[in-house]
Design a protein around this nucleic acid. Structure first.
Lengths: 105, 105
DNA sequence: GATGAGTATAAGCCGTCACTTACGTAAGCG
DNA sequence: CGCTTACGTAAGTGACGGCTTATACTCATC
C-alpha cells in the first residue's frame, strides 16, 4: 500500500496508469506518448508501477504488454477511506491525549 | 492535488493526519507521539500537510492547533476515482493508439 | 546463429526530501 | 522587562528518486 501511494505521487506514473487503464499497451507505445522523455525512463516507471501492483505485465513475443490492475486501485481507495478512521489505534490515541490533558492540569 | 498525493506518500505524514483526524491537537502533542523524531521534523511535516491543504491550523496563544481537513481528503478521493476514466483525454489516446496500429500494418 | 526489434538493466548525475542541530520569534507570566 | 513555553525557520547532510547514456537481454526471422 505504501508502494502504491508512492508510485501515484509521480505525475508521469499517473499518466501511464491512465493510458493503460482501459486497454493493454506495449512499452514502446507508452513511451511514444511522452515525447520529452527516454524509453528507459518510462521502462523504469513501469517497473515501479509493476512492483507496486498497480500494473500487470504480459509478454507477447518481444513485446511486453501492460495494463492497469484496477482491482489494486480499488484496494487503495478502500485503504484511503478506512485508514484514518480505523478503530483500535484511534482509541489508543484518544486515551493518550486525555492522559496528557490530565497530567497538565 | 499533486501536492496532496505527494504529502500522503510519506508514512509519517499519514500518521499525523490520522492523529488529527477526529480532533484538534497542538504541535507538541503530535511531536510527542513520535518518540524517535525531532519536533522540528514534525513541524516541517505539518507545514507540508498545511500547504497541501490536508490540514488546517488555528492559533491559540502560543500554541498552534492542527486538524485534518476532511473535505480536502474527500476531494482527493474523488480525484482518484475519476482521473483514470475521465473522458476527453481517454478518447484522444485511444485514437492515437488506433493510428499507430494502422501505420504499422 | 547472425541480425534486428523491443525492452530491461547498470552506472552515474543532479535535484529533492527527510532529518538534525542551531537559532529566531511570539505570546504568556513572574 | 526578563524568562519560559511553544513553536517555526535556516543551514547543512545523507539518502533517495528520476533522468540520461550505454550496455545487455530476449525473442522472432533470415
Amino acid at each position: 500500500m505504501d508502494a502504491a501511494l508512492k508510485a501515484l505521487a509521480e505525475p508521469r506514473r499517473r499518466e501511464i496508469l491512465r493510458l493503460v487503464w482501459m486497454r493493454e499497451l506495449p512499452a514502446t507505445d507508452i513511451a511514444d506518448h511522452f515525447g520529452e522523455v527516454t524509453r528507459s525512463a518510462i521502462s523504469q516507471h513501469l517497473a515501479v508501477l509493476k512492483t507496486a501492483g498497480l500494473v500487470t505485465e504480459r509478454r507477447d513475443g518481444t513485446r511486453r504488454l501492460y495494463r492497469a490492475d484496477r482491482n489494486e486501485m480499488k484496494k487503495l481507495r478502500k485503504f484511503l477511506d478506512e485508514y484514518w478512521t480505523s478503530g483500535l489505534e484511534r482509541l489508543r490515541d484518544v486515551a493518550e491525549a486525555a492522559q496528557r490533558d490530565k497530567e497538565k492540569r
